[in-house]
Amino acid sequence: MPAGKKECIPTCDNCGDPAIFFDPGLQRHLCERHLCLGLEHRVTRALTRHNMVSDGDRIAVGLSGGKDSSVLLSVLSLVIPEHWDAEIIAVTVDEGIAGYREETIQSAVSLTQQLGIPHHIVSFQSLFGTTLDSLLIAHPLRACTACGILRKKALSDAAREIAATSIATGHNLDDAAQSVLMNYFRGDFERLLRDSSSREERGFIRRIKPLHEVNEKEITLYSMIKGITGLLPECPYATTAFRAEVRTLQAAIEYHYPGASRRIITGQESLNEQAKKTIRPGTVSYCASCGDPCSGPVCQACGLLAGLNKRD
């Protein structure tokens, strides 16, 4: 660094206040207030553009208590009443992870109380008769895969129980780009072209991802500025090593080629559109055990649980 380099205190391109964030894609500096307004605007735009909400909806918001879902709930509770006559109910799934879930569930409880939003908590124990911890002791499964399958089922069951018309989850732009890359690296063509958002089978509750245009850094900043979540523990099972590696790679690509993550997702979306025209949809069947739509005789969750019971 040459001596005498000038000090730089960037200011917000909208109002001139001190900037806290530089958006490399848009080449814009934002202050605290305009970062928050911009994020809320993009969520509203996503909800409108993709017709994610209609009047009379009952939206089940998956609330783990982590930063993504907590920011999602806070933003939805702000923007939904401004534009729609729809209800919001937070749903938390307690997977049963000792030493980790207690604190994050407490954080979810405080948030819903603070926002005045009804909160429904379900557990793996009550739904499936086992906690994730005991399931993983008896069966050396990949933690995140098993947890993901069962959590999705738990959220669907809970949403059905409270008569929700849609399920909103906190998936962000980085998650989506990483998932596309992971499917490419695995060569998982089927999963790459699976488009759950358009499925309208009997018993299937629509899933929406209102944060899909917002990246992880902006969500973290929003959460810090608004004081939504404090420092929370990370899941002891963490994410799989593979996702962690892909995340590092995706972040490096995004840093050197701003906007690359968005382009990965947009490209994937047009691929899905093209595929819909040429690939005949696979036959949809319904799980013999629980009745959920699935692609085989039983759904993934029931298959997983049945396998466990057989071996016990």
């Binding site: 380099k5 000038k6 000090e7 730089c8 205190i9 960037p10 001190p18 900037a19 806290i20 964030f21 530089f22 500096h29 605290e32 783990s64 208590g65 982590g66 930063k67 993504d68 879902s69 907590s70 994050t104 906190g170 992880e216 850094k217 973290t220 900043l221 810090m224 500025i225 929370l232 990370e234 899941c235 994410t239 995340r247």
Partner: peptide
């Protein structure tokens, strides 16, 4: 995410002198 003397700053901001600079990891998940 980076703070300078307790305040959030973007990555093209400068630091100098007696500044206290803290770096926080962007938390994943949830």
């Amino acid at each position: 995410i980076v703070t300078k003397n307790g305040r959030l700053i973007p990555e093209d901001a400068t630091v100098s002198g007696n500044d206290e600079v803290r770096v926080f990891l962007v938390a994943h998940g949830g």
